[in-house]
Design a protein around this nucleic acid. Structure first.
Length: 882
RNA sequence: GGGGAAUUAGCUCAGUUGGCUAGAGCGAUUGCAUGGCAUGCAAUAGGUCAGGGGUUCGACUCCCCUAUUCUCCA
């Protein structure tokens, strides 16, 4: 097939230009990491950022939109992770080109434009294109999508239009939500010779690597309810997605997306670094593909603010990186961090389309390098543990290792199973897979049952035709109507989610915690425990429902908490500004928590802040507070806000209209609630500075009444200390004197104890009784007051007296203690056992004990029996009274 | 959110069913050997066994709580 060669950059641009010419608005990709949707961690399809529009919980500003969206498919319904690298077209991170219609054009235009773009603009030969339409489903009560079929018929022969089942041609977002039939476009890339042998029609959707789907046109016309039934949507939408990497592969006439100019520069660099050629050895090729793919996923995730961690989204990123490390570790024989060195190459090829990569290049490299190092360490300790297991197996002469051991290695030490198997193979060993799987199954079961959340259907109450309105910037209480509610059961208990027609409650977002407060009608008062945002809806959490669900209620925000939160939020802006002033403009916000009691701010910076830097930041912030800056809040276009110098955050989703919050020179885009003038913050104090990951520092600080409580606490400590020490003129000196004194006394006690021991030893040495060749010492130790001292005495005598048999009765804290020490040679020659003897003698003090053959102790309850116990021990040793 | 593990000398780690009053290697200090160095030999210092409770005659070891870190599942 012949067409003009285009590089990736041009292809992307042509797509966008084409749809712009068809009246579409071109918008930027939304972040890959998702923040306000509990059912999804990453953007896994182009339509994610429009989900709220499809669900009807957000308004739309444009009827036609097109963009290139960065996506990640690594978990949940779409999980391609394990495929990546082994074939030539699966990817974790990929770009999805898409055009959308919101209640505007439908099947006719969507199909017509797709055909025009592919055949006119991109010059894909028409005889290589096949399309599919939904065949219908009796189970759902839907007939075949004849509409789509008829439109296609205008462009291709009927035998090139196939019908497909629910699996391939009915698209659903999740278990519930908007859905509808879809129509796929497939391209046959095989050489003519093969095309003549087998009809391409028979290979569509059959997993053939060169007959591939490149574009899916989804016609959203239904909503799936929890009950499973479909309801027709009042407004129909178009949602299309074309895999950018696959499109490039087609247009550049490659048989693998890894051969396109998207991946080749990186693969060439890996090849140079490892001194191995791409294309010579399948395992090496797989490894290089894995690394070049995963590099993109990780770099983009980090650029969007998602750091590798051990929970949720961060954990997924960590696992992707580890998979890459694991491949170069084994197949490219590299034992040093490598992926971070590829970042410049990635930035060179994608930085212009995604400026967030370029701006944070150094930071991304640092984070990746640290992660690589940490996993290489994990591998090292895992190999150590595995060596032990191999050694034990060698003794057992079994060729199969217990699967639970391999599971332990995986579960506890993070050591991958395939690597375990590979290393074992070198020792002619295998793993019992079914045992391993069993361990895995149990682990899954445990997690699932504990994390189960049961979310009910929304129940609509009052008609919310007006949509929901947030009035919390200006009001802290309002009369509201409940528009919908549902019940949610989880391990923590049963909650209700309430949505109002308008609300003064601020939902958790942008790091600021949700408002608390109550709703009330007459005597019916219900606490609002928290407020969260879900699909653009403000959801109020309560423990019960109002008696009259449809009636008007008074909603009241906890004003004290709201004001304290506002103080901390405004202070966060000042802190951000001050950090950039003091440390430099490389400081980027990486996370933030604004709580009524304190604030937490994470930011990129490569070293610990010095005492002087912290002071400088505090001084700067407090100066701004005292300068009485009024807050200026206004809405403007994103474009204008940037021009005005507002700081926007990477990984944050901004609409066309943004809210600018300004205090003096600090301007940020922010939807949070703020105080009116900086002086309301009162005072700002940093209470801790720490590191949370490579290249990221965390500052915790307090303001206003939080600072009052802090000072109060410090004062109380000082007062009480002074009181305890009798108001000394110099508190520090007083404490240090006290410590010195304590040390001296400690030394004196040690010395005194040693003297007591020596004195005891002297007394006992005078009482040595020769019984045969045994030097018997027995008696009591009135001078010793600790078990430790008795032990010392016994051990010292052991070194001084040969053929020793020592039997001591002591009174420690009014409790009797019996000690027996027997010389090593006597233990052997005379078959004496201190442990046995002490057990017999301890009966006299109603106690028990034991120890080793040469040394044993016993404690008891009756001090009166001590002397009898000593005698009993002597009798036991010699079989008679001595 | 749930499970598993780790925390012992400056560093890397041993430490047996609870008991030989806590060990090794590297590093540090000192001395010796050598013309000097690489180095070798010897000695010494260095420990709240993460912190707090409990069980026991006796806890680095067993149990509970807390902190930090690692790891797996969701």
């Amino acid at each position: 097939m012949k067409n003009i060669h285009m590089d990736a950059q041009t292809i992307r641009q042509k797509f966008l230009d084409f749809f712009r010419s068809k009246g579409h608005n071109i918008i930027p990709s939304s972040p890959m990491v998702i923040k306000d949707d509990p059912s999804l961690m990453f953007t896994n399809a182009g339509m994610n950022q429009f989900k709220d529009i499809f669900l009807g919980t957000a308004p739309f500003r444009h009827k036609r939109i097109a963009n290139s969206q960065k996506c990640l498919r690594v978990s949940g319904k779409h999980n391609d992770l394990e495929e990546v690298g082994h074939d030539c077209y699966h990817h974790t991170m990929f770009e999805m080109l898409g055009n959308w219609s919101f209640g505007d054009y439908f099947k006719k235009e969507a199909i017509g434009w797709a055909w025009e773009l592919l055949t006119d603009e991109f010059r894909i030969p028409k005889d290589r294109i096949y399309t599919t339409v939904f065949e219908g489903s009796s189970e759902e009560g839907i007939s075949m999508d004849g509409e789509a079929f008829d439109h296609w018929k205008q462009y291709l022969d009927e035998d090139r239009i196939l019908t497909g089942s629910k699996k391939d041609n009915f698209w659903e977002m999740g278990d519930t939500g908007p859905c509808g039939p879809c129509s796929e476009i497939h391209v046959d890339l095989r050489p003519d010779q093969e095309r003549n042998k087998v009809n391409g029609r028979d290979l569509v959707n059959k997993g053939h690597p060169q007959v591939i789907e490149i574009w899916n046109l989804v016609f959203i016309q239904y909503n799936r309810r929890i009950s499973g039934e479909l309801e027709r949507l009042p407004k129909k939408h178009v949602d299309t997605g074309m895999g950018f990497e696959r499109l490039c592969m087609v247009l550049q006439q490659k048989t693998s997306s890894y051969d396109t100019d998207i991946f080749q520069p990186v693969i060439r660099q890996i090849s140079i670094m490892c001194d191995k050629k791409y294309g010579d050895n399948e395992q090496v090729d797989v490894a290089m593909r894995v690394i070049s793919d995963h590099l993109r996923a990780i770099a983009f995730a980090v650029a969007d603010g998602q750091l590798p961690s051990n929970t949720r989204a961060g954990y997924v990123i960590r696992r992707i990186l580890r998979r890459a490390v694991r491949y170069y570790f084994t197949y490219l024989e590299q034992k040093q961090p490598l992926i971070f060195k590829l970042v410049p190459s990635l930035v060179a090829s994608m930085g212009h389309a995604f400026p967030e990569l370029q701006a944070q290049q150094q930071f991304i490299e640092k984070v990746i390098r640290e992660e690589e190092l940490s996993f290489l360490r994990t591998l090292e300790s895992g190999i150590k543990r595995l060596d032990q297991i191999i050694a034990e197996a060698g003794r057992g002469k079994s060729a199969m290792i217990n699967g639970l051991l391999a599971f332990e290695l995986y579960d506890t030490y993070g050591f991958p199973l395939d690597l375990t198997e590979l290393i074992l193979k070198e020792h002619n060993l295998t793993v019992n897979r079914s045992e391993f799987d069993e361990g895995m199954k149990q682990q899954r079961q445990r997690s699932k049952t504990d994390a189960a959340v049961d979310t009910g259907d929304w129940i609509m109450v009052n008609d919310d035709a007006e949509g929901q309105q947030f009035i919390g910037y200006d009001h802290t209480s309002a009369d509201v109507l409940i528009t919908r509610y549902r019940k949610v059961k989880s391990k923590e208990g049963e909650f209700f989610h309430l949505v109002f027609d308008r609300t003064p409650f601020y939902a958790e977002s942008g790091g600021q915690v949700g408002d608390t407060g109550y709703i009330v009608r007459g005597n019916d008062r219900i606490s609002v425990i928290n407020t969260i945002k879900e699909h653009n809806l403000t959801v109020h959490l309560t423990k019960k429902l109002p008696a009259d669900i449809a009636a008007q209620l008074r909603a009241q925000v906890d004003v004290k908490a709201r004001m304290d939160t506002a103080r901390n939020h405004s202070a966060t802006h000042l802190l951000h500004y001050a950090l950039r002033k003091v440390l430099g403009n490389h400081v980027e916000q990486k996370g933030s928590l604004v709580h009524p009691d304190y604030l937490r701010f994470d930011f990129s910076h490569f070293q610990k802040l010095g005492e002087d830097e912290i002071r400088k930041v505090e001084i700067l912030v407090n100066e701004m507070i005292r300068n009485n800056h009024d807050v200026h809040i206004r809405e403007d276009s994103f474009e204008n806000a940037r021009k005005a110098g507002a700081m926007a955050l990477f990984g944050e989703k901004y609409g066309d209209r943004v809210r600018m919050v300004q205090f003096g020179d600090s301007i940020e885009l922010c939807g949070g609630t703020h105080i009116e003038n900086t002086c309301q913050i009162g005072y700002f104090k940093i209470i801790s500075e720490s590191s949370i990951a490579a290249g990221i520092r965390r500052i915790e600080a307090i303001t206003g009444s939080g600072y009052e409580r802090f000072v109060e606490k410090q004062e109380t400590v000082m007062k009480e200390l002074n009181l305890l020490l009798g108001n000394p003129p110099d508190l520090i000196k007083a404490v240090s004197n006290l410590l010195d004194e304590k040390n001296q006394l400690q030394k004196k006690i040690t010395l005194h104890n040693q003297q007591q021991i020596n004195a005891t030893k002297d007394t006992l040495l005078r009482q040595v009784k020769k019984v045969g060749d045994i030097n018997l010492i027995y008696g009591e130790t009135p001078m010793l007051d600790s078990a430790e001292a008795v032990k010392d005495t016994a051990y010292q005598l052991r070194n001084q007296v040969e053929n020793l048999c020592l039997i001591l009765g002591s009174l420690i804290n009014e409790k009797p203690l019996l000690t027996i020490m027997i010389a090593d040679n006597l233990v052997k020659e005379k078959n004496l056992n201190a442990s046995d003897i002490v057990k017999i003698a301890a009966k006299e003090i109603q106690g028990g004990g034991g120890g080793q053959p040469f040394y044993a102790t016993a404690g008891g309850k009756t001090p009166g029996g001590l002397s009898k116990a000593v005698e009993k021990a002597v009798e036991t040793v010699f079989g008679k009274k001595v």
